[in-house]
Design a binder for these strands. Structure first.
Lengths: 195, 195
DNA sequence: CAATTTGACGACCATTTGGTCTAAAAATGC
DNA sequence: GCATTTTTAGACCAAATGGTCGTCAAATTG
């Protein structure tokens, strides 16, 4: 006997919850808000995800997976390397302009809010940054081998620099969004590091 | 009649409160924690600062003022420009290494936690970033006029870039602190932008 | 010294928090 | 159609939240 099947789609619930956490952060998000966003009853939510923290981890994992998927799409090894890097930078310019800018980034917000207090979260954030850095480095190494990097540019250092720059843009644009200057910044970066 | 004078020093209380907010963030800091840190009773705290939010604003103002003071000290117009910029970058390398790294930055954390929901906070954060960017730009313009900047580097764009990079380093180093790579990143920056 | 102003303290309060549990309903397999 | 299983809804709970208020002591001033 299988019993009654679940009425909601857990993936949809995670997606909705992710939206709330993204907008408000972990502590500022209350259970009632999550219930309304997911259209779940308290009982269903707890049965499916354990507790608020568990649901948050699922939402964070989703956000991280989406981010890395986009990164991989941009840095596709079959494309021209510099085009890939440009696409990646352009994506961040978009995300740090307009309405999206004010929403910020769930990873950055979580890193600052829980990064040093919640080991499970810390692990996930650390892995994300490692993964992002590694992907950038791989792309930059390919660019270097194709002699598309400016002389003296070291892929590992440049990868770290680009990652910090992009995440910093998300911080600053939370309150000082300005498409023009984001654009100019990534252009300056390309001017200095590529050839 | 003047009445009984206050027993505690409000500045000390703000300093202590700042420490707690810095470590835990706004929402995660409870009143009892603030009372213990400041050695104040509930009544005294509310009489002196209005409420938790008011105290937070005072603490944030303090943190911002301290940051700008340090920045001005580093970028002292009487010093050699590049030395000043180097000092500024070196300070961020320090702050993104060791124990300080895990503590993060109250401004960055606040920008992400409350930046788009609390107008009073948003205003302060925006002003800080504007001020930081302006100071960096002034220094870079001076460097440019002394022909110490690499060809084609625009002070305004470079200022924004450096600010984003430095704040991004604080984000990443919350979970992935690594003195060596911070050091390498700022060195790469100098190599590319100064001459 | 006396009067008065004021600060400190902590009991107190309503609200909200995250989390549990029960009872009814619904879908399944026989 | 029945028995079983699982979901659902929401009443319920203890604890913690931010915030208020009355009492008492202390310090200043005339």
């Amino acid at each position: 006997m299988r019993g009654r099947p679940r009425e909601f789609d857990p993936d949809d619930a995670i997606e909705s919850a992710m939206g709330v956490f993204w907008t408000s952060g972990y502590h500022a998000t209350s259970l009632p808000e999550l219930l309304e966003a997911t259209n779940l009853s308290r009982g269903s939510l707890y049965a499916a995800f354990g507790d608020k923290h568990g649901l948050f981890l699922r939402a964070l994992d989703r956000y991280i997976a989406d981010s890395l998927t986009r990164l991989d799409a941009d840095l596709d090894p079959h494309k021209d390397v510099l085009d890939g890097i440009r696409a990646c930078l352009a994506r961040y310019v978009e995300r740090t302009s307009g309405a999206g800018a004010k929403r910020g980034c769930l990873i950055v917000a979580t890193a600052m809010e829980l990064g040093s207090q919640d080991v499970e979260v810390e692990q996930r954030i650390r892995r994300f940054f490692k993964a992002m850095e590694a992907r950038l480095m791989t792309a930059l190494e390919r660019a270097k081998s194709e002699r598309r990097l400016a002389d003296g540019v070291e892929p590992s250092t440049a990868a770290r620099l680009i990652m910090c720059l992009l995440e910093g843009m998300r911080v600053v644009s939370k309150t000082n969004a300005d498409r023009g200057s984001s654009q100019a910044v990534v252009q300056a970066l390309l001017d200095r590091f590529a050839k």
